[in-house]
Write a protein that binds this DNA or RNA. Sequence first.
RNA 1: CGGGGUGUAGCGCAGUCUGGUAGCGCAUCUGGUUUGGGACCAGAGGGUCGGGGGUUCGAAUCCCUCCACCCCGACCA
Length: 577
Amino acid sequence: MRTSRFLLSTLKETPADAEIISHQLMLRAGMIRKVAAGIYNWLPLGLRVLRKVENVVRDEMNDAGAQELLMPAVQPAELWQQSGRWEMYGGELLRMNDRHQRDFCYGPTHEEVITSLMSNEIRSYKQLPANFYQIQTKFRDERRPRFGVMRAREFVMKDAYSFHLTQDSLQETYEVMHTAYSNIFSRLGLGFRAVEADTGSIGGNASHEFHVLADSGEDAIAVCDKHQYAANVELAEALAIRGERPTANADLSKVETPDKHSIDEVAEFLNVASTDTVKTLLVVGEEHEVVALVLRGDHELNELKAEKHPLVKAPLTWASDEQINAVAGCSAGSIGTVELSVPVIADRSAANLADFVCGANEDGFHYTGVNWARDCAEPEVFDLRKVQAGDLCARADATSAANDDDVLSITRGIEVGHIFQLGTKYSEAMNATCLDQNGKAAVMPMGCYGIGVSRIVAAAIEQNHDERGIIWPTAMAPFQLVITPIGYNKSDEVKQACDRLYAELKDLGIDVLLDDRNERPGIMFADADLMGIPHRVVIGAKSLQNQQVEYKKRGAESAQDLPIENITAWLDTEIRG
RNA sequence: CGGGGUGUAGCGCAGUCUGGUAGCGCAUCUGGUUUGGGACCAGAGGGUCGGGGGUUCGAAUCCCUCCACCCCGACCA
């Protein structure tokens, strides 16, 4: 491609509404343009990258035995009514009517369509297992689209759905997909991590998310390399502190804590560590009006975990000030476990404390030297808190001596893939059965496997950029190499050398960009760096006199001079290995 | 959906408080000088000041209303 024939729409200044670096750089490099909130045009440069990602995904999916098909973006309401999601799905489902006022939606996902389709096409267990995928545009009417294509309303997704006779077969395909996903992200040159994930409302047996690691990621991931454990912090299990609960030592004592409400204020005032305090949170209960959740002072509540307790009403709802006053007789900052007449659920590490500090259920007072069993009832113990960096890994041997590499670290990630074992939720609803060996109809268990193709583009930039712009991994680069002439329109020698190299590289099948604009070198360098083209060759009259050209890898410290003689072969090796 | 904010040329902004008929930088076009890290000179084009309504002799500016977009909280590829 020649720049004179290509829509280069680079911007010197950053558009004001772009907040994160990938969004800024995609706009500045001329990859995307906004049409409406969360809806984007992909310009030729951006589409090149998107297609590269799609092709890697397609290649690996095909290798893993999946078959590509294409389903419609617009789907009839009837299918969604069968699965029950027409009512359940809420505002994210973009609904519309056709000219006959029939209900349709723009597909946010395709379980309904594929299950309906395969309930007709798959007749016999001999056709199983089968895995189908598509790369297609989805629409989810997000409450708050943001970060460009990272969280868009319209986006490109690869979604796959597998059908099975048995759970074992589903498990097998699930593992094949796990491997395929790892291959995809490796080939794309991304630093990533597969993590255990919440199965959420869909249920099912297993679920993994694939995260591209980046500081700007919206998700926090707890990782332990030693035990190869990685989980979304929404899910990551928090173990109790090592060892048994110490025996009670101190006497229960009520102390004045005027105007001290937060844990930090109380701990400082009483001159104790926050790890020797507990906080008592009142939330709306399932059977009781309120229940108490007790955490160690320095810990944070994990709301998803709390919702899983049968006594806690989901979604988690905080008790009102009136309810708190009715139950505890004080305001929120002074609630404690002593003489509290509601069910008490304590986090493991809170339950392991002795001689701790808590509120006295009277404004302005706390208790010190509080002990379970002696001063208040033994609590029900439950994993309630968010894991923190430094916590013991859930797979570590809790009885062994403390060891630095047994602990979790927290990193941030961008979710780019999610694999699920769906079970029979959809196949039952849509009556997707096939005949088994005995000629009996069997409901087919299903798996589903998603990759956010357009999100990968943004995630790759979050992970690979510098102050000059994008640094594409080779597999995703819109162009693999740019030829930057110095004086293309002035010197025939330069022009000929550039044209020749361009033609030779093109013949080798390399995506090469020749910058034949009549621009100053600084502009061409800046644009090439901004667009993130991995390899650059500069050809000017001076270096040609020495039979040399200059080569620089994007992101490298400095350039090197190379003989022009074997430059094509040398570059081919450098680019394709 | 709740809370906060912003809409002025393709992009970044000033002008709004205190009403007087729209400006700066970048980009674009023409001519010239330049040519190894976003050049310089001269000229040019480009604006329903988010939309509608009102107040006024006069509205980007004041008032009402609608809309769009952005940011902070619960969801997801």
